[in-house]
Write a protein that binds this DNA or RNA. Sequence first.
DNA 1: TGCGGCTATTG
DNA 2: CACAATAGCCGCAG
Length: 587
Amino acid sequence: MLLAGGPQAVEELRRAGVRRGAPVALAVDAAAGVGMAAAGRRLAVPAADADPASVVDEVERVLRPRWVWWDAGTAVRLVAAGVRVATCWDLAAVDRLLHGGWRVDPAVVWARAQGLPLDAAPTGPPDLWSVAADLDEDGGGDGAADGPVRRDGHLKATWVDGGWAAAPDRLAAWAAAALAAAERQQERLRQLDRPVAAAVARSESTAELLCAELAADGLPVDRAEAERIIAAVVGPRARSEAEAAAQRARRDAEVLRHVPGLEVDLRSPGQVRSLLRRVGIEVADTRAWRLEALRDRHPVVEALLAWRKAERVATTYGYGWLDRHLGADGRLRGEWTASDGAAGRMTATAGLHNLPAELRGAVVAEPGHVFVRADLGQIEPRVLAAVSGDRALAAACATDDLYAPVARSLGVDRETAKVAMLGAMYGQTTGRGAQVLRRLEAAYPVAMAYLAAGDEAGRMGRDVRTYGGRLVRLGAGDERRLDEREARRRAAARGRYGRNALVQGAAAELFKMWAVTVRARAAPLGARIVLCLHDELLVHAPADQGDEVARVVAACLDEAAGRWAPGTDVRFVVDVQVVRRWSDVRG
DNA sequence: TGCGGCTATTG
DNA sequence: CACAATAGCCGCAG
């Protein structure tokens, strides 16, 4: 059905019974317009009749549905057009949750949702062959023949490759296919037999939306302050390549003057090792923690460690980094991925996730604003208590510092208890932690068995599923021609990976549920999340709303934990502070 | 030119 | 120096 604009679309959707939170599939193309599908109807608004962004915005404001789309590309397009919607169902994100790993295109998402054999799905851009085949299907005569789906059930290569954007009615048909795929995904989530999986699928979807916003909004950074910090370490900005080379040489000389007559490239670990050998220091490698203990042996060690710090700033977090990532509007922007790596953590580029502590002084709220900074306390052991159902560990979570009761249970000091608990979650098998591990097994048998099961699965190359339903692939890979020792070493590494993925992955699920809850509840106060850091949120808020946002952020943790682990008696804790700059956070 | 190793930063 | 990540430079193979 062709419509003229947003109000008419709202009317049609309302007549179809669409209410707040109901699925409305969406396909947007700036040139062609908007296609929607919901409750058995297909609607299209040509771009010639109404601005696509305004149509989506109108429907959002009046109906606030759960938007269903193929992948985060739609989220990125909406955010770029200035449209912020509340919630979505991201087929690609849910596909990664259900099936693990890699980023995939609609052809694969569709095939997996429908349970079709993947080897028959179209791959890559269409070639002469698949174009002819799709045309042949279109001419087949039956009513739906010119839709996006082939007779064998797979999507047509020409549609996957962008054919959906050719005309308004195609946008609507593409949206209808997305809606059908979403329904099949929900069925698959139900089959997982994990009541929380559907809620996780929703928050993982909305986390994709949050990532699109984080990438667009950026992190407020005071350029002058950043340049002051950098200048204090590496000096003023070089005006030419020659000047930069001279600065480098000057830094190098500060180290080399301690070893006269030696020609050494300090950037080469091998040469640094020979340098140290020349002054009587023999080391297996030259990492800082190892050199730290040798500071007194020779003055060159101290100089080298200082050189390394400056070199880090000069190469990775120097003026070049500012120029590449800090916009004229004082926002530091990187790319965000909502579920990456081993277990579905968020990742970010541009140094957003590994900014050296010194530079946090340059992260300053804009005039009239504050940061509400919140971090989850001891999130991994608490998550372990929740997902494993260990009653004793859950009881320890009642205190703000869970390592205190754990230490009492084990009969060791707090530091030892902490190292042992972390060691259990990471798979440490040597040192002091390993000895205390046996006491941990006695005190918290359910939690430790949960970890051991992850370890076993990893060693066997068996995939695991996190508490929230994310499949973590642990396939053994190609290990022919490995000697016994190397094969054992790799199996042990996979064991640690599998053990940790269950905890880290579950923590990432809870974190994202918290983050999207904060996103929703803080928006009416004019506040926006500007940084997500695994267990920490930085929210940029109007100064007069700081305390209220802080209250909301804390309340959101209870709300998210209640949704993620209903009925659990595990207590989650959060530390919330209102600050003007990130470095003002007290430890 | 691509990739593994080394190193540093963060949670 | 366990688990995860990004990022830069060096040295070596192709």
